[in-house]
């Protein structure tokens, strides 16, 4: 019984990290319609922001999370203004541009911060395990789980319960009509892109104490994030949540039964088969085209 609980928690923990890193991508991909290959690098920048603030200003992880959101969000906004908005409707060009941006960001970090692995402190209060329902679970992983749930709730409220969210949904449904009603679509896109980038920044900040911080850490995350978004169906918040849960539990369970290498291969295979028969993903709504 404790085995099963342990395993479910471990899968849930994997799922929360997956959701965390794919939430920003899902929002950008789903609303702005841009396939942002630099998403992994936004995650990486979030982690480096924490390292920098901790190392140079002695800040703890919690203020760093907030600052990472604004720092990477601002960068996202600048990127949208300078690059992305010139490329709307040109899917292949945005793929190329964001990929190039990712390479540039990675090299910029390598040249400025150095290529070595960086140390980020785990908050002392969260570095141990807590006894919970008969098993030991990592306090930090519980914290990540809780914070992911909060971010999800905030994002839900933002999209479905605010004026900004209403305009955003209007723009997604039909940008021309939205514009006719006086919605500033260009501003909506910029803010959405910035928000998505900011979420990636938070994701990077949160994984940095648990994993490792290096210039090429984003490469793995962007693959995971795309897998979640593709399976969940673009522009569906519910789909992203469900998909992160399924993929997290599945990779955790398979890794437990066999090993991580096999688990990764089987999950990839599953995703390929799924998109062959359901290219729109599990929960598909409309996508902005053009």
């Amino acid at each position: 019984m404790t085995d099963i609980f342990n395993q479910v928690f471990s899968g849930l923990s994997i799922a929360s990290i997956l959701l965390l890193i794919s939430l920003g991508l899902a929002i950008i991909y789903g609303t702005v319609g841009v396939i942002n290959l630099a998403h992994g690098e936004f995650v990486m920048l979030g982690a480096y922001a924490v390292w920098f603030l901790e190392d140079h200003f002695g800040l703890g992880l919690f203020p760093c999370i907030v600052l990472a959101f604004f720092a990477v969000g601002t960068l996202g906004w600048v990127v949208e203004r300078l690059i992305i908005r010139r490329l709307y409707g040109r899917v292949l060009d945005t793929i190329l541009a964001t990929w190039g941006l990712g390479v540039i960001l990675q090299q910029a970090i390598r040249l400025s911060a150095g290529a070595e692995l960086r140390y980020v402190q785990m908050p002392p209060g969260l570095s141990a395990a807590v006894h919970f329902a008969g098993v030991d679970v990592s306090a930090y992983r519980l914290f990540v789980l809780a914070l992911t749930a909060i971010l999800l709730a905030v994002t839900y409220v933002l999209i479905f319960r605010t004026r900004f969210g209403m305009r955003l949904r209007g723009v997604v449904q039909n940008p021309e009509i939205a514009r006719c009603f006086g919605v500033n679509t260009s501003q909506i896109y910029a803010m959405t892109f910035a928000y998505g980038a900011g979420l990636a920044g938070i994701a990077g900040a949160l994984v940095s104490p648990l994993k490792s911080v290096s210039p090429d850490m984003g490469t793995g995350y962007v693959v995971d994030a795309f897998m979640v978004v593709v399976v969940g169906g673009v522009q569906s918040l519910l789909g992203t949540v469900a998909s992160a849960g399924i993929i997290g539990e599945l990779s955790g369970g398979l890794a437990y039964l066999s090993n991580d290498t096999i688990a990764k291969a089987i999950v990839f295979l599953g995703v390929v088969v799924l998109i062959r028969f359901r290219p729109q993903g599990l929960f598909a709504l409309r996508v902005r085209r053009g």
Binding site: R141, V207, K211, G252, A255, Y256, N259, K264
Partner: peptide
């Protein structure tokens, strides 16, 4: 054996 660069060790 875990894939090179693997960072999720919960399992």
């Amino acid at each position: 054996y875990v894939p090179l660069g693997h960072s999720e060790f919960s399992s």
